[in-house]
Design a protein around this nucleic acid. Sequence first.
DNA 1: CAGTGATATGCAACTCTTTGCATAGCTATT
DNA 2: AATAGCTATGCAAAGAGTTGCATATCACTG
Lengths: 178, 178
Amino acid sequence: MALNHAIMTALLDTPMSGYELTKSFDTSLGFFWKASHQQIYKALRDLEQQSMLAGEEVPQAGKPDKVVYQLTRQGRDTLDEWVLGQSRVSDAKDDLFVKLYNLNDTNRAHIIEELSERAAHVASNLSLYQRIRERSFAEPTSLPVRQQGVYCALLAGIRHCEWTLAWIEEVRPLVDAA
Amino acid sequence: MALNHAIMTALLDTPMSGYELTKSFDTSLGFFWKASHQQIYKALRDLEQQSMLAGEEVPQAGKPDKVVYQLTRQGRDTLDEWVLGQSRVSDAKDDLFVKLYNLNDTNRAHIIEELSERAAHVASNLSLYQRIRERSFAEPTSLPVRQQGVYCALLAGIRHCEWTLAWIEEVRPLVDAA
DNA sequence: CAGTGATATGCAACTCTTTGCATAGCTATT
DNA sequence: AATAGCTATGCAAAGAGTTGCATATCACTG
């Protein structure tokens, strides 16, 4: 399971509560791995039970208390091992592509609409990633090693967005005229 | 569920058996949606039960008999409706990106190795898609409407591969030197 | 005729993800 | 006091996907 590993990864530097993790998954790692709060809280409980994480109740003023989790020694070791294992390639699993296989005169307008929505969504993601890049990775070569890895992943996010936008511009006229 | 819709889409032009669908999912639509034979056979039974598909036993010589499924009128209508609904953006869900967040001196060699494997895999996919493009889509504008949609999806596959290869070339030196 | 391998199909258990519902603390506003 | 809204956490059911195992037909080879 990689959600567990994604969560442990997110906790590498900063211990966080489930709520904070959920927020952080909405940006950062969340581009590569989306997870609902239900999934995250569940995973946190499981991981704590397996001694991968240690949770600590933190009283708060002005807000409900929270439980902050940090990686244990064992969790760190397990994560390190996982990194050294084999990854497998995942599929895109995107409705839009399947829908394109169904292109006809009746649905063309709708599909163009969806392509436009997708473009808008991706463009807004892209500008978010660009902001992050400027803010935190202006000089990537002078960063600590792990942050350079994060930067590579961020670049993937950026390139992915750019690629998607270019593809949409490429096919829009084709779909339009089809 | 979109696997069902992907299967119905695959059957738009050509009635197929579960076995043939499984093979066809390995190429074509399979770039966007991978599915095991277990999943496919199950989906076929479900869809037949819902009257979306009609199965017909076809005796064969030299091979075991098979059941060939074709879209029913109702299946076609349901599919058309689905196309007109909203898609949602899916996440990349790729271990490699999560692993990059874990980059350190110990695992760097392994991650570079995985990047290379990924590049090789994607390159081989790309050449497959290129062959398909040359073989079946040499003159995209003169194709029937639906095939033009398929062509757009194929372009997505091609661009995706190209993008991934470019990204790997971009980050390889970064990971190397980190 | 035993073994290998492609064709063709299926069950069951498990894991992972989504969705809907629910609760509770605390702040600020009306 | 009621209400809206963010913070913080959880259960349960259903849907989707993976993995392991199983079975049978047919052709070909040793």
